Amino acid sequence: MEQGKKFEVRRIQVTGRGSFIVSLPKRWVIERSLNRGDKVVFSDGGEGSLRISPLESAVKSGPSETTFTINPLTDPESIIRRIVALYLIGFTVIRMKTPQNRFEAVHSDYVKEFVRRKLVGTEVVFESPNEITLQVLISYPELSIDSALRRMVTVTVAMLRDAVSALATGETTLAGEVLKMEDEVDRFGFYIVRQLKMASQDLSVMKQLGLNSGRDIIGYRLVTKSVERAADHAVKIAENVQAMRVKTSSRLIQKICELGGEATKFFEDSVKALYRRNYEEADNVLKRMGMFDSLENRVLNDMNRYKIDPVQMSSLRLIVESLRRVEEYGSDIAEVVLNLTAVG
């Protein structure tokens, strides 16, 4: 194979017994230190391609176990970031050790609480004073990407509706419930990203997860990000409701809630188009963007007509901005649907 070439053409040969054979490029064989009699593995590379790997590397492919050390002065958030990175990469067993006789209580407690709240199917399977072992126990068929995404969306839509209801009624307790629901969205978001990364490296995993191609992997990654961001803005709406301490015109609040209802429906309809893989539905959702813009402008104009406490005004404007972002994330999802279904 000449330097700089991305591919090489080889002729298919036929043996006397009717078997088809193709010779391997000499350079490829030498680079992998292969010899006569060594075994190679053939696997479906997807979209009509065939993947060839040395048997040893094929057996060893994919991460399984890893260990890292936690020093006494390590920031707990730094530990969490590393655990998340290793979880997303696809490690099944994650061991943490300390050079001390025992972990700092703040470290061990923080890790165990985070795993409980944020990582689907992950448990502490071993714990001693100076070692903690996490293991991902859930397997691909048990929770498909589609099921995990549907759960994410269900919780996110509930968060948006409750946040808007809290604004309408002034119930700060309901707003507080929205904040508690964010963990559920994060849990399934991490799980989906983990599965997508593993699917991108192994066609068999991709098939087990119900995905058909690399386009699906990219599309679901973008959709997952949009759902996570919509949930983040539901939290911001709830936080701004909690920050409001002065009664505002009920007419203005009603109009903002109408805007919230439209943003939530826009987002929900975009996801429904994804579930159905329906190009026309996604296209129709995007056509409604102008209606949302008009409603938002009317709300902003009404806000300027009222004498509102500056702190209250800031909270209301941030709520309207969050509703705008939810609508934008819905449009992002609809555009993903168009990209996935434009060609039958």
Rank of each mutant, 00 (worst) to 15 (best):
V299L: 10
F292L: 15
E281C: 02
E184H: 12
S226E: 07
S322Y: 09
I79P: 11
R298P: 10
F20C: 10
E56L: 08
L338Y: 10
V185S: 08
D283H: 11
V271Q: 05
S19E: 15
V326F: 02
E328A: 14
G260K: 02
L143Y: 02
N130T: 09
I30L: 11
L259M: 13
M181P: 00
V246K: 14
L55F: 02
E142R: 09
T224A: 09
F190R: 10
D216V: 07
V106T: 14
T74A: 07
T67R: 14
S43E: 12
L88S: 05
G261T: 01
V29S: 04
V155F: 05
E228V: 03
I79K: 03
S331R: 10
L167K: 07
F190C: 08
M244H: 03
R277W: 13
S49I: 07
T154Q: 07
Q195D: 11
V336M: 06
L318H: 07
V337P: 12
S213D: 12
M152P: 13
R27D: 14
R150S: 00
P76R: 13
K197H: 09
S147M: 10
A168D: 06
A166Q: 00
S57M: 06
T173M: 00
D269N: 15
V29N: 06
C257I: 02
V320C: 11
I30G: 10
V185M: 03
V125W: 00
S23W: 13
V115Q: 05
K26Q: 13
